[in-house]
Computed example of a mutant assay.
Amino acid sequence: MLKTIEPCLFSFDLEWIPDPLSAEMLFDVDTSGTHGPEEAMKRLWKEGGATEEMPQPYLKTVLCRIVSVSGVLREVASGNVRLKLVTLPAVAGDPEKEKEGTILKQLLKAIGTRKPQLVGYNSHNADVPIIVQRAIVHGLFGQGMGERPNKPWEGVDYFATSGDHNVDLAPMVGRWGQTPRLHEIATLSGIPGKVDTEGGFVSDLWLQGKLQDILDYNEFDAITTHLLWARIAHFSGLLNAEAYDREQALVRVLLDEEIAKGKKHFVQYIEEWDRLKALADKRL
Rank of each mutant, 00 (worst) to 15 (best):
M1L: 11
K3R: 15
F12E: 00
D13I: 02
W16N: 06
P18I: 02
L21V: 15
L21H: 07
S22L: 03
E24A: 10
L26W: 09
D28Q: 15
D30G: 09
T31Y: 02
G33T: 08
P37M: 02
P37I: 03
P37K: 05
W45D: 00
P55S: 13
L59K: 05
S68P: 06
V72G: 04
R82S: 14
K84T: 15
V86K: 13
V91T: 14
D94M: 10
K99S: 09
G101T: 12
L108Q: 01
A110N: 02
I111H: 05
Y121C: 09
A126D: 07
V128R: 12
I136V: 15
H138P: 10
G144E: 09
G144C: 09
P149G: 10
P152N: 06
E154Y: 11
A160K: 08
S162P: 01
D164Q: 11
V173F: 14
R175L: 15
G177A: 14
G177R: 14
R181V: 01
H183T: 13
I185H: 06
T187L: 08
S189L: 11
I191Q: 05
K194Q: 12
K194F: 00
G200Y: 07
V202T: 11
S203N: 12
K210Y: 11
K210M: 10
D216S: 13
Y217I: 07
Y217P: 07
N218M: 01
N218W: 06
E219I: 01
F220N: 10
D221H: 07
I223M: 10
W229G: 00
R231H: 08
A233I: 04
F235L: 13
F235M: 10
L238V: 12
D245M: 01
E247Q: 10
V251S: 01
R252G: 03
V253F: 04
L254F: 04
F266K: 05
Y269G: 04
Y269F: 15
D274T: 09
A280R: 14
D281Y: 05
R283W: 11
